[in-house]
Design a protein around this nucleic acid. Structure first.
Lengths: 321, 321
DNA sequence: CTGAAAGCGCTAACAC
DNA sequence: GTGTTAGCGCTTTCAG
């Protein structure tokens, strides 16, 4: 484990200069047999170029930084896969950091990504990181925010108002009229979904939904039992992260779905099909692809890509007329 | 977006040499007011040190490379979170690449990680990447293989034979006698689990289990229906990746669990508790932590850490006597 | 076509 | 304490 072999070692072994080695490695004009000698040396010495040093010149690595709030959520996971897929297709690696919904870590991680001179940055973080994202943008590092529209930065978002409305419409079509909602926090996405739901319900002449807030899975049981006191005929969960907990709370209360209560949730997930749970899905994989594409294409002006939600009806709200 | 500000710019602004700036940044001995001037310049110029260049000296970045076969699996996801957690605690970032179970990409990605001079590498790949992992080890980059023991490399694995045995014992305790198994491929983990299951069943004087292979979720339906022709009173799924599909195939066949058939699967997952599915769990998060720790600690000799599986009984196999 | 030499941004001796 | 001077491994003019 002495020093690693460098381009200089290869040059010596092949009896050429480092410049020549660099050329054959990067496809410059080199006489054929010279190149052959170099390749041979490369192979024998098992030379692996140092990508770090390379990036020093461009001042930029071929890595896409991703700062996620919570990998443990079907949405973020699929998003991640979409990003990874596009990164791979563009010879880029993904540098990843999870913040576990911890604001302090968000800024620290974004900073670290900047220090790593990532080629671009994709974040699902809160406003705390916007300042740095802006300065990074000014320095030529494209930054895209997912799930939140921000002036001056690229963004990839769901039409959350439409999602809320879509939920309401489906419930109305299924003949439900008393809606309870499990929401989580005050992020724009949650607020907008709630607004859309509220509006559409009002538009259909139904009473306003009761909305309870649950920050973590542990809080869901209490939130749902609060909801159930109002004897709703439908329960909506506005974030995929809390779907399991909501489902558990409902069944633990002895309720059948959709007999006693309809269940409608956000975000597609593997078990939804198996359990017949109706969801309003986000095209998360595609959103990840688009986010990564924005990094790769680096358009000069801020681009906001809004995606439409999709209703995947599976019966957990009963039959729609 | 001209040139980024460098340590030189800061030095000029503060009226000191780059060495001094470097010292205040990295905690060397500097007079207090000099340091203050430097920090001021750092702030005004929004200087963000280039981590890439720093790594050039150590010949090594502070990044842990992770090459995963399939993020879309509860085991790998938790593993990843464990890795991320330890990496974060050690000022390291995680550089991630998914191979989508594609051998070619495995070697390519591992090579790229090497080029990035990762501080260490964690892979869940097949034998194809072992050669490079060995040479990386020789170059001082600790490599740890997850879910597969490899001579000369660190490894973090489950005691798969014990897991298989544990499954058999639970089924026997629940009075089941005719076992059907959904396995996936010939990876050591699958083979060993099958062997453990087979042995323990034989030890209990029961007939050998029928084992069918399903590579992907799409193949599960057919595999399960083959199994069902033998009228088993228990179905075991040896990989968490195929749990949903197995469950779906069973319920689609109109079978009730555990009434008509017991269901026992590998790997803990969020919905298992909600659905009362009994699993044999791997301490995946802890395994991720240990893998990352091996990278951080970089022991000289290969370390093989074997973890014990845990049975989480939830009733999907009936009552154990 | 190929080599010599000048950096890229930063750290690490070595002097003052 | 602080500045000077070498490099780290690689790319890229600029000559030859």
């Amino acid at each position: 484990m002495g020093k690693r072999t460098t381009i200089g070692d290869v040059a010596t072994a092949a009896g050429v200069s480092v410049a020549t080695v660099s050329r054959v490695l990067n496809g410059g004009a080199v006489k054929e047999d010279t190149a052959a000698r170099v390749w041979e040396a490369v192979t024998t010495l098992e030379y692996t170029p140092n990508a770090l040093t390379k990036s020093i010149f461009s001042g930029r690595s071929n890595t896409i930084g991703v700062v996620i709030r919570d990998l443990n959520s079907p949405f973020y996971l699929d998003l991640m896969r979409g990003i990874d897929e596009v990164a791979g297709a563009n010879d880029s690696l993904v540098m990843f950091a999870n913040t576990y919904r911890h604001p302090d870590r968000e800024v620290a991680h974004v900073r670290t990504m900047d220090e790593q001179r990532v080629r671009g940055l994709i974040v699902t973080t809160g406003e705390t990181t916007d300042a740095r994202s802006r300065s990074m943008t000014a320095n030529g590092t494209p930054c895209v925010v997912v799930a939140r529209a921000v002036a001056g930065l690229h963004s990839v978002i769901l039409d959350n108002v439409a999602a809320g409305r879509m939920m309401a419409e489906h419930l109305v079509a299924c003949g439900r009229s008393s809606v309870g909602v499990v929401a989580s926090g005050q992020r724009p996405s949650q607020v907008e979904r709630t607004a859309g739901l509220r509006d559409a319900l009002a538009g259909a002449g139904l009473p306003a939904p009761v909305v309870v807030d649950a920050g973590t899975e542990d809080e869901v049981a209490a939130a749902v039992s609060t909801l159930l006191r109002g004897r709703p005929d439908a329960v909506v969960c506005l974030t995929g992260r809390l779907t399991v907990a909501t489902y558990t709370a409902l069944t633990a209360a002895g309720l059948t779905i959709p007999g006693d209560v309809a269940l409608l949730t956000m975000d597609e997930f593997a078990w939804a099909a198996a359990l017949g749970i109706t969801v309003v899905a986000q095209p998360s994989y595609e959103m990840g692809r688009q986010a990564a594409s924005l990094v790769v294409e680096a358009p000069a002006d801020p681009v906001h890509r809004v995606f439409a939600p999709t209703l995947v009806a599976r019966g957990s709200c009963g039959e729609a007329r």
